[in-house]
Write a protein that binds this DNA or RNA. Structure first.
Length: 860
DNA sequence: CGTAATACG
């Protein structure tokens, strides 16, 4: 049973991290083989083209054991090239055979297209959570004109803006590709999936770049939609998304609590009755105090070389000091004022809230250029030259799809919503796929279109005739925010740590467990709602699986990133912003592995060391676990373990096993309302199943904290790289290598904080479906796009099933891609390169590398 | 505080 492990890691400068890794492992290849990583996706490499070319040895960019793909920041803010910023790399081992690669994903995306009308609409779907929508239009050949796109060269000449455009001078409407040019997306297409490596922009501590970030994210989402359609392959989206979407994805003290909600839902919080009453009594006073800034008394304290601020609050005449110290007045008001906080959307009116792309036969009037081989960078430029740029730059506001108002009510207790989605999909998908196999497409199509799924609008007349059209236009629209402002803090909300500060000053003392219980019951992520909604759309609407939270919905304290400047890794005060999301189709191939292992950040505490040495555990529980196949040897590659993992019901495609495991997780879950579970897991000496006890012990908050900072011990205060004399003690050596002994299938790889302020996240797949192989694939190749080799017409007539299901993409995305994936042949799989995406080559050991990376920097 | 170029996370 072949398995494939993918890891994603924000390395915060690959040059240095790589150097450190090589100091221990000699080569990156050895590091990868030690961790059984077949594909390593890196973010924040901070490299540039010339570094890759000139210092490829330093970066281990060339090896016999893998290929490497790179993208770098081209420029920032439309200005000069910023070197040493952002940048991605994907290291691909030979096992994960790559078909092609694209480092310029938005080159065929447009902000605006003219020459189509509502009558051309095939089908559209609105996603009410954030009012984003996807629409397909079937256009007669030759219609549809790219507009609103001004190349950089002509931008200066068209400075006199058309009426109706609010674009400030000096902010030319660029092409989509030119706007997202910071080396943040790297796509590799493999035999069985498309891998999208992403580094989402950081909003900035003052949310200065939230507008850019949201537009970037929506662009990525529209690219995912395009990739699903044009490749027929499922997507694996990995990387640093700079979003924590659940309350559990941020440290409990950094959860945001709504005071009204806390008051109303106090009974959901498992804390002592007297504490509940105390809190409920004090909330009105807190609200009253914080609502009037006259109650804020702020004192400036001069330090030796810095100043800090202290906060005193006037509680109805009683003045109490709150918290310790703060860095600024603004910070205090941001945290303690109950007013909502908004930030301006600087892009409002500058860029339209639409992304367009075409699906059509080659040689059409719009795309112009002929099909070229992937490594011909001129093709792109020629295509550009042939295009008729509309210098008016008119764009349309995406208001065609009035949907439900924003904000669907949602609870924040785990991710039940996502689970319901998965469950209902799995059932329905099975039914429909079996129907499809019998080639009875039409009734199913009718069924899907007519079953009244709301938010879907379709034009049945157009659908009936769209085979005659030769161009399909796809439009992704989004509502960036309301009234040109993003809400980054809601009214009546406080960080739990600040609420705690206030409660302390009022004489109410909550224990760590109490606070954790408050966070789990009514806490919210501190990411802005527009960001969490984006993630929820990926999961609930596009139905991707967040591999970590899906398998571990209730774990607390599992983070991928910590603020290095504040040494927060020591206290495990972090956030989970690095993800591996997969299209639902791949869900059945994920290897869950052993429950405590894919929580994985296993650290060598004395107890665990002893546990390992004995091959048993702190109890019969762990021994039981060990006998069950816990890896204690140094050769996690051995076949026995692999087949064990794959066949003993740990693989999720065995429904029964999955249910059992899920049940175990839920039973152990800390938010069962039992406060004792949370922090005292290790000590809980109840009658729980040994396996559960072991699980609780390994995943207790104490251990989480240990995991988080254990490798700090490797941190040497003196010198950047330990010299030979500083060679690590046997103990540390032990510890270092320990992380490679226990194999994690889905979870985290707790890399040393010396390497990066992020750790790596990983997940593992079976490369072949388990149950007796797949259904026989049809010899109908799927790959069509602006530069596809398959004319849409012939495609439609020979694969009318697939074509007729195109609209269903919107109605049931996983069904669509599941069908394509299961039954049709991706063109890429046998055709070598894929013309629609091949735009970059693996790094090669040659003196002239740069030519392969100058895709977007060619002449315009 | 660390990476990298003098900003950014």
């Amino acid at each position: 049973m072949e398995i494939l492990q993918i890891a994603s890691w924000n390395v915060n400068g690959w040059k240095r991290s790589c150097e450190l890794i090589k100091h221990r492992e000699v080569t990156v290849a050895q590091f990868l083989s030690k961790l059984n990583i077949d594909i390593l996706c890196l973010q924040e490499t901070k490299t540039n083209d010339s570094t890759i070319e000139n210092e490829f040895r330093l970066l281990d960019a060339y090896s016999d054991e893998y290929e490497t793909y790179w993208t770098c920041c081209k420029k920032k803010g439309g200005e000069k090239i910023q070197r040493g910023y952002s940048g991605l790399a994907t290291y691909v081992g030979h096992k994960a055979k790559i078909i092609c690669c694209c480092s310029d994903p938005f080159r065929n995306f447009f902000f605006s297209v003219d020459g189509f009308s509502d009558e051309d609409l095939l089908v559209s779907r609105c996603f009410p959570r954030d009012n984003s929508s996807v629409s397909f239009y079937a256009l007669p050949r030759g219609s549809g004109h790219i507009s609103g796109v001004v190349s950089n060269q002509t931008a200066g000449q068209t400075a006199g803006q058309t009426a109706g455009q609010i674009r400030p001078a000096g902010a030319p409407l660029q092409s989509v590709s030119d706007l997202f040019n910071e080396g943040r997306v790297l796509i590799t297409i493999h035999n069985q999936f498309v891998l999208v490596n992403v580094y989402a922009p950081y909003s900035g501590c003052d949310y200065n770049r939230l507008d850019y970030k949201m537009r970037f994210l929506h662009a990525v989402r529209s690219k995912l939609l395009e990739l699903r359609i044009t490749t027929g392959l499922p997507i694996i989206l990995v990387g640093d998304l700079n979003i924590s979407f659940r309350n559990r994805d941020v440290h409990y003290l950094n959860n945001v609590v709504n005071l009204d909600e806390l008051q109303k839902e106090i009974n959901k919080v498992s804390i002592r009755e007297d504490l509940k009453q105390r809190i409920c009594k004090q909330i009105p006073l807190i609200i009253e105090t914080l609502n009037n800034r006259d109650n804020f008394v702020i004192k400036k304290v001069k330090g030796e070389n810095s100043e800090s601020f202290r906060l005193y609050l006037n509680f109805n005449g009683e003045v109490k000091r709150v918290g310790t110290k703060f860095t600024s007045m603004e910070e205090i008001y941001f945290f303690f004022s109950l007013d909502p906080v908004f930030v301006e959307d600087k892009y409002a009116g500058v860029y339209p809230n639409d992304f367009f792309f075409f699906l059509q036969e080659p040689g059409g009037d719009i795309q112009g250029g002929d099909v070229r081989s992937g490594d011909d960078e001129e093709g792109d430029n020629q295509r550009r030259d042939n295009e008729e740029w509309d210098k008016e730059g008119i764009f349309h506001k995406g208001n065609d799809h009035p949907g439900d108002p924003l904000h669907r009510s949602e609870t924040h207790h785990g991710n039940h919503e996502e689970r319901d989605v998965y469950d209902s999909f799995a059932e329905e998908s099975e039914q429909i796929c079996s129907h499809l196999r019998k080639e009875e497409a039409a009734p199913i199509e009718d069924y899907l279109l007519h079953r009244g799924r709301k938010n879907v609008k379709c034009n049945l007349k157009k659908i009936a005739t769209h085979g005659e059209c030769r161009t399909i236009l796809c439009r992704y629209s989004f509502q960036s925010c309301i009234d040109g402002k993003y809400n980054v803090k809601k009214a009546n909300t406080l960080y739990l740590k600040h609420l705690n500060d206030i409660l302390i000053s009022l004489g109410t003392f909550l224990s760590r467990e109490d606070l954790l219980n408050v966070a789990n019951a009514v806490g919210h992520s501190s990411s802005p709602e527009c960001c969490t909604n984006f993630m929820k759309n990926l999961i609930c609407e596009d139905r991707m699986v967040d591999t970590f939270s899906f398998f571990y919905p209730f774990l607390n304290g599992k983070f991928t990133c910590w603020d290095a400047s504040k040494q927060h890794r020591m206290s495990n005060e972090g956030s989970r912003i690095d993800y591996i999301l997969v299209d639902f189709v791949l869900y059945a191939r994920l290897i869950k592995g052993h429950s405590h292992l894919y929580a994985s950040p296993v650290i060598l505490t004395d107890e665990l060391r002893e546990w390992l040495r004995r091959g048993g555990g702190p109890s019969e529980a762990a021994r039981d676990e060990a006998n069950n196949g816990v890896v204690t040897d140094d050769a996690p590659n051995n076949a026995a373990e692999t087949s064990n993992a794959a066949n003993t019901g740990n693989s999720v495609d065995n429904d029964k096993a999955a249910d059992n495991d899920k049940a175990a997780d839920t039973g152990n879950a800390v938010d069962t309302g039992n406060a004792a579970n949370t922090d005292n897991a290790a000590n809980t000496d109840n009658a729980a199943h040994p396996r559960e006890r072991s699980y609780l012990w390994v995943n207790s908050p104490e251990n989480n904290c240990n995991y988080a900072n254990y490798f700090n011990r490797l941190r040497k205060k003196a010198g950047r790289i330990p010299t030979e004399e500083e060679a690590l003690s046997g103990d540390e050596e032990d510890i270092y290598h320990f992380q490679f002994k226990l194999r994690s299938y889905i979870g985290f790889i707790y890399t040393s904080p010396r390497l990066s302020d992020h750790i790596a996240v990983n997940c593992t797949f079976l490369t072949k479906a388990k149950s007796g192989g797949e259904e026989k694939r049809k010899q109908i190749p799927i790959c069509f796009s602006g530069e596809a080799t398959i004319p849409l017409r012939s495609f439609c007539s020979s694969a009318e099933q697939y074509a007729s299901f195109l609209p269903l993409y919107l109605i049931d995305t996983p069904l669509f891609s599941g069908y394509a994936f299961k039954f049709l042949h991706p063109l890429h799989a046998h055709g070598g390169t894929c013309p629609s995406v091949a735009r970059a080559q693996p790094h090669k050991k040659t003196s002239k590398i740069t030519q392969y990376f100058s895709i977007k920097r060619g002449k315009r």
